[in-house]
Design a protein around this nucleic acid. Structure first.
Lengths: 257, 257
DNA sequence: CGAATTGTTGAGCATACTCAAGGAGCGTGG
DNA sequence: CCACGCTCCTTGAGTATGCTCAACAATTCG
């Protein structure tokens, strides 16, 4: 079973037949090095790329030369489902680690979506979850102080990796540099470093070689205000008790008119 | 013609018949006051809501009580197309100004998407553009200094309003408070005020009553690093290289008939 | 006209940035 | 096996951007 079906199963209802069909349609698997583009800004790719192994990212390059990372693509994620409609890429996708990538031929995609409504629905679901993640990142990056931003991002990555079998509630292997985390959170790599140390000193994370350890995941999730609802997983969250809205200041947001 | 078809026509190819059908399916139009919720976090709404007039927003409320605005919904925008699949709202939608809202019955939606592939495609397009806007906001909020953030947001709103006939290249009527702009950009309302004044003094924007004027739109767009490509409008703008004649049409994703 | 909301300004402070230098880890080649 | 070079991490110092608090002015709306 590929990470694709692992992932889609986590949020939708696919039968064994659906899964076999899906996995069989992934063609032309290939290895890419770290720091290679899978799809570049302005491309009009024909087929849809899927990540089978490794970590990639969506990114935009600012006029200043700074890179803004807008998504992490983990095993099982689709790179550019949307390009079939929008035509041209408005951002690039590049590998962060060495990756295995496969293609999902666009013609097959059209057929499958007609013939297997459950699969069409599962792909819709994946697209919409990507959008929900974007909303959550926007909130994270826009509104929280850096220590909470980092905590939140670590929690999300851990859970998404767990879905595809690459993390546990205790640890994950996260081969990202502090600069990449900074490009994601909109803070400098120097500041990522300092904030990371704060989290370590607070006992919220630890490092063991290249493994990131979570000595106290509930506390980390509470600190990062991480509520996994936005990932829309079927499996009710393992580790997370509902975020007690321990509202520090229950000020109204939309005053009743 | 409703703003819905105005908007969808700007990015996809709808026939007069499609448009008449779409507009006819909007039922139960109603007036809402400013600062009312259209859909609330956790809801499982049945039908899809559409904004016909006024400005609404998606927002999340942080544990601190702070409101994070993740999208503006302008006339012609769909509120919650995605809920059909994801089930539960992971954020709220509320009016910012008095609004006219109508419903698009979910059953109709399913039918129409099967029978009219062009409409299905247009709705897909709208969803994907929403996602592209989110990516751009993430970059804007995460990476740019406040003055550029504000400039960029103003440019986007102006263009989106122009699409539905509510702005020109000279001016727009934007009834948002500085606090709302701050909740969107992740900066305080006080700072919005100061930055706004900088833009005015620089001659990039001006106010005339409630109209926002653009004395030098190209300069504002340059300053805000605004490149409209991410809105994926058909009307080709500035920097977009020409589509080669006889360009291959991207194949449809949903059944064509 | 009065109440409420929104916009404006100042002062002091906190968060996060830049620049810069040094250290640790790792792969490569002599 | 060690030396080298590269990348990444770490730390310090000075600075800047943006925040909070607070007061007041202007505008809107009932």
């Amino acid at each position: 079973m590929t990470p694709v079906s692992l992932k889609l199963r986590s949020g939708s209802d696919l039968t064994a037949g659906d899964i076999a069909l899906l996995d069989g349609l992934l063609v032309n698997p290939r290895q890419l090095n770290a720091r290679e583009d899978i799809v570049s800004d302005g491309d009009r790719p024909g087929d849809v790329r899927v990540i089978l192994d490794g970590i990639a990212c969506r990114y935009k390059v600012m006029p200043s030369g700074r890179r803004a990372i807008t998504a992490f693509l983990l095993p099982g994620d689709f790179c550019d489902l949307h390009v079939c409609i929008l035509g041209r890429m408005d951002h690039s996708i590049g590998t962060l680690t060495p990756c295995t990538v496969a293609d999902f031929p666009q013609a097959m995609l059209d057929d499958v979506m007609q013939i297997r409504p459950r699969i069409a629905r599962a792909l819709w679901w994946a697209t919409l979850v990507d959008e929900a993640i974007l909303r959550e990142w926007l909130v994270n990056v826009g509104q929280r102080p850096s220590d909470q931003k980092l905590a939140h991002l670590l929690c999300e990555l851990r859970l998404r990796l767990e879905v595809v079998g690459l993390a546990t509630s205790r640890s994950m292997k996260l081969p990202l540099t502090q600069e990449e985390l900074g490009d994601t959170l909109g803070i400098s790599s120097v500041h990522v470093n300092r904030v990371f140390q704060q989290l370590k000193h607070a006992g919220l994370v630890a490092m063991q070689g290249r493994e990131t350890l979570f000595p106290n995941l509930p506390r980390l999730e509470k600190f990062g205000e991480f509520n996994p609802d936005y990932l829309h997983l079927k499996v009710e969250s393992v580790s997370v008790p509902p975020l007690s809205a321990g509202a520090r200041q229950p000020s109204p947001v939309l005053p009743s008119g």
